[in-house]
Amino acid sequence: MIQVAATHRLSIDCEGDIIAVRRRVRDIAELRKFDSFATAAITTASSELARNALVHGGKGVALIEEVTDGSRLGIRIVFEDEGPGIEDIPRVLAGGYTTARSMGLGLSGSKRLVDEFALESTPGSGTKVTVTKWRRF
């Protein structure tokens, strides 16, 4: 069972908030002694998902949780927005697809950077992406 040890809620309303989210994630990962590769991975995924919430969702929130499953320590982050949602989830997860003339590697790339990835989206009502990175011992 997963227990939440601490929770940080950050809103994503402008570009500066994307930087604030990824800095907070980096600081937590460093404080919790994640190695530099795991820290870069979760920080980069956070930056991608926060940018998606802002650019594609209009605005959103990031809920950063310090979690443990009894034996491991992890960081779980939920990115949520009430934007237009995603019609074709398999297509955006395959990578290389974008509606913003950017690279289309944010979702597919983030998925590869974390240990657990869940994307829920309802066209017309919003998107929720949950990622977890566990610390390796």
């Binding site: 530099s36 590769f37 870069a40 991975a41 980069t44 590697l105 597919s108 790339g109 590869r112």
Partner: peptide, 14 residues
Amino acid sequence: MRPEVAATLVRMGY
């Protein structure tokens, strides 16, 4: 480029 940045970019497919 730092090692962890190189690893992250390649893992993302870029």
